[in-house]
Simulated assay, not measured.
Amino acid sequence: MPPTDSATPHRLTRRQALAWGAAAATLGAPGLSWSQGDRPLRVILPLSAGSGADGAIRAIQTSLSKALGQPVVIENLPGAGGITGTTQLVRAPKDGSVIGVVSNNHVVNPHVYKSAPFDAIEDITPLTVIGATPFVLVAHPSVQARNVKELIALAKAKPGVLNYGSSGNGTILHLGAAMFVDQAQVDIKHIPYRGMGPLMNDILGGQVQLGVVAVAPAAAHIKSGTLRALGVTTAARVPSLPDVPTIAEQGLPRYELEGWIAAVAPAGLPKAEVARLYNGFKAALAMPEARDALIAQGYEIKLTPPEASAAFFRSELARMGQVVKNANVKVD
């Protein structure tokens, strides 16, 4: 991770209008100032409601409103692995009225989709990396392996017999498992699902044997024994699973992956607006209620200045390109 520290007129849905009103009411609370001339900040989330990134940004929504002194309205625009919503973002006004919150898929998509209507680097202005969450390689208890070394030995003894699920072709969870298969040099079949929910249900049910999933939703199942944790994907062990070794320390030293979220704006955003928005996130994440809420979602705060965030996007784009190439990941 890095060092830390014009669109078409849009008609609001009823849900978005209510959210707008709630944000405005929050800013009308004692101690906050909001004049009718202040505009809302529209936050495009190119992922579905209920996703990890959705929960994270909603966890800090009220604090961000307070820090910026304006309503914050979150709009989910999922589709095509994030391309649908990001297309709307890059075409938005370059005046600080619209930003987006993107995840790993932003730098994965250019390598797995044949074409996209925007450039993942040139068409955005990075504001800050907000935070990151660890993943864990899990197995159904019926799998005869209790750690990564045993899994590799089992897979090599039975090539093509084991399978792993993912939240969909080309997603970061797919790449996490594909990267393991590539580095371990084993033959394990891929079964794509449509989302994290169906994937988790079928791993728990034993319909699929393995998967790389987020630690937060898996932790309770690991502790109860309905899932077996084989290794965490991060460089260091995870505090919530202190007894689970990293994949890297179990014989795959190059393995490292985490799920990050970052705030971005359309390309060409004036420097004053970049500074204002970054400082807004900085102030929001300094509030205990925002920090605690984000940590409760399973995220480690990685507040990163704009220039360092831009460098991070470039390095992640190159790194994910190599992962996709090595694992031969394709989206039909």
Rank of each mutant, 00 (worst) to 15 (best):
P306G: 10
A293M: 11
D292S: 08
E289W: 07
A293H: 14
T304R: 00
P288A: 09
E289T: 13
R291Y: 05
M287H: 09
R276E: 02
R319V: 02
N279E: 15
A310N: 09
E300K: 05
D292N: 12
R314G: 00
L317Q: 03
G280C: 07
Y278H: 15
K282E: 12
P305K: 01
K282F: 09
Y278V: 09
L303G: 06
K282H: 15
T304F: 00
L269D: 01
A308G: 06
I301F: 05
R314T: 09
N279W: 03
L294A: 06
Y278D: 04
K271F: 03
E289K: 10
K282P: 03
P305L: 05
S315P: 09
A283K: 15
P270T: 07
R319G: 08
A290E: 08
A272Q: 15
E307T: 13
I295L: 08
E316I: 05
R314K: 14
R319Y: 12
A284V: 06
A284G: 10
K271E: 15
F312P: 13
E289H: 11
I301V: 15
A275E: 15
P306F: 05
L303Q: 08
F281C: 06
A311N: 11
R276D: 00
N279D: 15
E307Y: 04
A310D: 09
G280K: 00
A293K: 13
L303C: 10
A290K: 00
A318D: 14
M287E: 15
I301E: 06
P305D: 04
G268Q: 13
R291T: 11
P288Y: 10
F313Y: 14
L303I: 13
K282I: 07
A293E: 11
A308E: 11
L269F: 07
N279R: 12
P305W: 02
R319C: 04
A284T: 02
L269S: 00
A310M: 05
R276W: 02
P288G: 06
A286H: 12
F281S: 00
A267S: 14
L269E: 02
A296S: 12
G268D: 13
A318F: 10
R276L: 03
F313A: 03
L285H: 09
S315H: 10
G280S: 08
I301W: 00
P266R: 01
L277H: 04
S309I: 07
F313E: 05
E316L: 10
A267W: 03
A286S: 12
A275K: 15
L269T: 02
F313H: 12
A311I: 01
S309E: 06
A308L: 07
R314F: 02
G280A: 07
K302C: 04
L303P: 13
Y278A: 10
Q297G: 00
D292Y: 04
G268M: 14
F313C: 07
F312W: 15
L285P: 08
R319Q: 12
P266F: 01
A284L: 07
L285M: 14
A284F: 01
P306N: 12
